[in-house]
């Protein structure tokens, strides 16, 4: 059985995002979505279909996102406080563990798709090895 810690799994993505210089783009994409309540730093905090979506941009972005929860180069996406595992594809699109085989244009679209898919269910505790909820 492989042993992949969250730090390892996320760390590799972090390095690549930094190398590509796209970490800051996330915050910008979210901030330009008029439907979401956003702050100047790009944080999203909205209620969608009764669920609270909070997105904290990756740290290290060039718009002052140093206080974000994303210590990895990826944004932290939470639904009702539970973290959603997200990944960025090489073409800039996004997937999550809830919608893994379908890509989305930005983290907010991804989070909303997860809310629709959850149909009111609670996300399982974040666990890179899947976990047994």
């Amino acid at each position: 059985m492989n042993k992949i810690t969250r730090r390892q799994a996320m760390g590799t993505a972090a390095g690549a995002l930094a190398a590509l210089g796209i970490a800051g783009a996330t915050a910008h994409a979210a901030a330009t979505d008029s439907r979401a309540a956003t702050t100047p730093s790009g944080t999203v905090d909205e209620v969608y279909q009764g669920r609270r979506i909070r997105i904290t941009p990756a740290s290290g972005g060039h718009h002052g996102g140093h206080h974000g929860g994303g210590h990895s180069g990826l944004p932290t996406v939470r639904i009702d406080g539970r973290e959603l595992h997200v990944m960025r594809n090489a073409d800039g699109t996004w997937i999550s563990v809830v919608n893994h085989y379908e890509t989305f244009a930005d983290p907010l679209s991804l989070a909303r798709a997860a809310v629709r898919e959850l149909q009111g269910a609670t996300l399982a505790p974040f666990s890179p090895m899947g976990g047994t909820a």
Binding site: N2, I4, M87, M129
Partner: peptide, 16 residues
């Protein structure tokens, strides 16, 4: 199922 999800979450375009 557990093995599969572990790889799903760790297989990244820019890492292993």
């Amino acid at each position: 199922v557990t093995t599969h999800n572990g790889f799903i979450m760790s297989d990244t375009d820019s890492g292993d």
